[in-house]
Simulated assay, not measured.
Amino acid sequence: MDKERAGIQSVEVGFTLLQALGRAPGALMLKDLAFAAGMGAAKAHRYLVSYQRLGLVVQDGRSGHYDLGPAALHLGLAALTRLDPVQLARERLPALMEQMQHTLALAVWGNQGPTLVHWMPSPQTVVAHLRLGDVMPLLSSATGRCFAAWLPAATTAPLLQAELQQTHGADAPTAPAIAALQPLWAEVRAQGAARVEGHLLPGTAAFCAPVFDASGQLALGVLCLGPSTRFDARWQGAVHGPLSAWARQLSHDLGHAPAVQA
Rank of each mutant, 00 (worst) to 15 (best):
S215D: 06
S215L: 08
S215F: 00
S215R: 07
S215K: 07
S215N: 08
G216S: 05
G216Y: 01
G216N: 00
Q217R: 10
Q217N: 13
L218R: 06
L218T: 10
L218H: 04
L218I: 05
A219L: 11
A219I: 04
L220P: 01
L220H: 08
L220I: 02
L220K: 08
L220W: 06
L220S: 08
G221E: 06
G221P: 12
G221Q: 03
V222D: 02
V222M: 05
V222C: 04
V222F: 08
V222K: 03
V222E: 09
V222S: 01
V222Q: 03
L223D: 12
L223K: 13
L223T: 10
C224S: 14
C224L: 10
C224K: 07
C224W: 02
L225C: 13
L225R: 13
G226M: 12
G226K: 08
G226W: 13
G226L: 14
P227I: 05
P227K: 15
P227N: 11
P227R: 11
P227M: 14
S228F: 06
S228R: 13
S228M: 15
S228I: 14
S228T: 14
T229G: 14
T229I: 15
T229R: 10
T229V: 15
T229N: 15
R230V: 14
R230A: 15
R230S: 15
R230T: 15
F231A: 07
F231N: 09
F231W: 07
F231E: 06
F231K: 12
F231I: 03
D232T: 13
D232K: 10
A233R: 06
A233M: 02
A233Y: 02
A233C: 04
A233G: 08
A233P: 03
R234L: 09
R234A: 14
R234W: 12
W235M: 08
W235E: 10
W235D: 06
W235S: 02
W235A: 12
W235T: 03
Q236M: 12
Q236L: 09
Q236H: 15
Q236F: 11
Q236E: 12
Q236Y: 11
Q236S: 11
G237C: 11
G237Y: 11
G237Q: 10
G237N: 07
A238Q: 04
A238P: 03
A238R: 14
A238V: 01
A238K: 09
V239H: 04
V239E: 07
V239W: 05
H240A: 12
H240K: 05
H240Y: 01
H240M: 04
H240V: 05
H240D: 07
H240W: 00
G241F: 08
G241T: 12
G241Y: 05
G241M: 07
G241C: 04
G241S: 10
G241L: 07
G241V: 00
G241H: 09
P242L: 10
P242Q: 09
P242M: 14
P242T: 08
P242I: 12
P242K: 09
P242G: 04
P242V: 05
P242C: 11
L243R: 08
L243K: 04
L243H: 04
S244G: 06
S244E: 04
A245S: 10
A245F: 01
A245D: 08
W246S: 00
W246T: 00
W246E: 01
W246P: 01
W246N: 01
W246K: 00
A247M: 03
A247R: 02
A247H: 01
A247T: 03
A247E: 00
